[in-house]
Design a protein around this nucleic acid. Sequence first.
DNA 1: CTGAAAGCGCTTACAG
DNA 2: CTGAAAGCGCTTACAG
Lengths: 363, 363
Amino acid sequence: MSSGGSARSGRVKPSMTDVAARAGVSLGTVSHVLNHPERVKESTRRRVHAAIDALGFVRNSQARSLAAGENRTIGLVLVDLGNTLFVDIARGAQQEATARGMTLLLANSDNDDDLQDVHLDFFEGARVSGILLAPMTDPRTGVDRVRRRGTPVVVLNYDSGRPDCCTVLVDNEQAGHLAARHMLDLGHRRLAFVAGRDHLQPVRDRRRGVRRAVTDAGAELVEIPTEDLSAGGGPGAAARLAALPAHRRPDAVIAVTDLLGMGLVQELGRAGLAVPGDIAVMGCDYDKRAWGGAVPLTSVRMPGEEIGVAAVGLLVDEVARGGEHRHETVVVQPSLVVRESSAGREHDPLVAARSPAEPRRRG
Amino acid sequence: MSSGGSARSGRVKPSMTDVAARAGVSLGTVSHVLNHPERVKESTRRRVHAAIDALGFVRNSQARSLAAGENRTIGLVLVDLGNTLFVDIARGAQQEATARGMTLLLANSDNDDDLQDVHLDFFEGARVSGILLAPMTDPRTGVDRVRRRGTPVVVLNYDSGRPDCCTVLVDNEQAGHLAARHMLDLGHRRLAFVAGRDHLQPVRDRRRGVRRAVTDAGAELVEIPTEDLSAGGGPGAAARLAALPAHRRPDAVIAVTDLLGMGLVQELGRAGLAVPGDIAVMGCDYDKRAWGGAVPLTSVRMPGEEIGVAAVGLLVDEVARGGEHRHETVVVQPSLVVRESSAGREHDPLVAARSPAEPRRRG
DNA sequence: CTGAAAGCGCTTACAG
DNA sequence: CTGAAAGCGCTTACAG
């Protein structure tokens, strides 16, 4: 394939005035056929539409927002599009926004707090009707700044603990509890939990759930620390497990993330421990990047799309009701996905997902 | 954590007029301190900035675009954010856009052509300065429509074969060639290529590359068709391979995607064939969802970020040079990532990526 | 049912 | 160095 002709010089887009001229009507009439077609006589409407088509007119939404004083777009700022949970959130939000006649715009802050601020400022400058923010760390400053200026913000996947904006959370304690219950139900009595420090909310909450389940069952829990929460943390943790004498070794391991779980499975295999024969393993997060590991990984699925849908709902309510709106926190429930790494090969992957509980509301 | 207070009623954002009043200057002066600070006396500038801070003023970018007749944002419409290649593209485009003082907005069409059109129309309505489009199928209609109205479009990852817009492509034939050369270099003489029909450009081009390498080497190629290009295609293809008598079985398999390769590895293992001992396997795409499979998968990496960077470069040139701009096609080169599924366990994963060739230009 | 006119929040020559 | 005024492309009462 070869080269190209030069670009047609940037043609100026037709305006409503051009359409009006071509249709032989006034500017206001064109606006009416766009906004209140029922107020316009059929034949006029047709002439205007003909002119619109002929000219390839596309209304300037910036001018429209400015004049109408309303903006039908929502900005979604995400920490990390590399994590499939956030892609799911975006998909859910997208669908719900469309269903409500709004447009969703995405911005990826790529784990960079400064970039996150840039995006927040951008959306505010664009006068979106509201912002959905999935932050990595405490978004206090950013949220404060934006809210103080009057733009509604819904925080996703981070519990800021403050009641001054809506929040959508996953019940991470329940995730940990589900995971441990699963292992206990399989008959395991000595569990291990591989995780980082409680610096990150999800780690802290999942740990709580695991501990509660183990304590309630009168079983035993070994906690194995790791700095690296992705696959790279696998070798270290696997080495520690493999080094234990067989009679003291846990018979089930819960990794705080799927990537970590995947790394574990791989390294345990190399150390000569069969999964799940010698030791059952599961992750948490249902991260698609950990799909199809050596042994398909049992996990706890976070309902990303549900989060996106709920968030748009809360935001739209706040925009519509203004002062009448009351902030609330929606807590969405995770669900267990049983696969081979805990239940064995005969277990059909992906089929046994338990259906999630109803989201709880509070607030 | 409990409930919330009601939202502060949607406060109206301060305008430049408010800033001017507070600073005791005219509207035009405020605009000058924002756009041409050097033209304003230091003390005045300070007063204006004080007013801006006090009021929490954020300039309305819609009004600015309207008045200035320029818009510093670029829209990126992606087929599928679930595929990590596109996330990489977005990251590269983001960085390059920022470096050039523009803002990148993302929209995910989620494999839905209608949604893709919606996004194109939205960006056109928003009067972005240009659009980057990574389509799934031939984007002819959409691109024509948008370009006819004067918005520059750069097409990513799809060869439309027409010289009337800029394009950034990955050299998929080279990807296939690299893959086959790798297997041949390892000493394999009977290769299999598992892929769908040539309906999709990448499949067609990768197949060409594989065939060329095999033919040039005087080796043998078995082509195994599959409908499903993701992990689900693994079992069928693995069954066909396993069913062959050992002396006719290929000693190396190239899957057209990583997900397919991952599915293959898993199923071959279940069928009792060791990877790479009995049969070497590799994928193509370097999809992070296929990370850390049973056996880390050798693959061909597509330089997503490079694509994003190149695309923004072409677009900005077209916007800046207008009629002077000449459309061109940039072809970016893939690179081999050798891992255990072809090279064996002793091979250190992720270390042996060959560095990619320089991108070629044409046009 | 249609049109004339003010106004949304900004930028930008043009005067002073 | 600063201000007054026109204009960007639209919407929306308000008249007719």
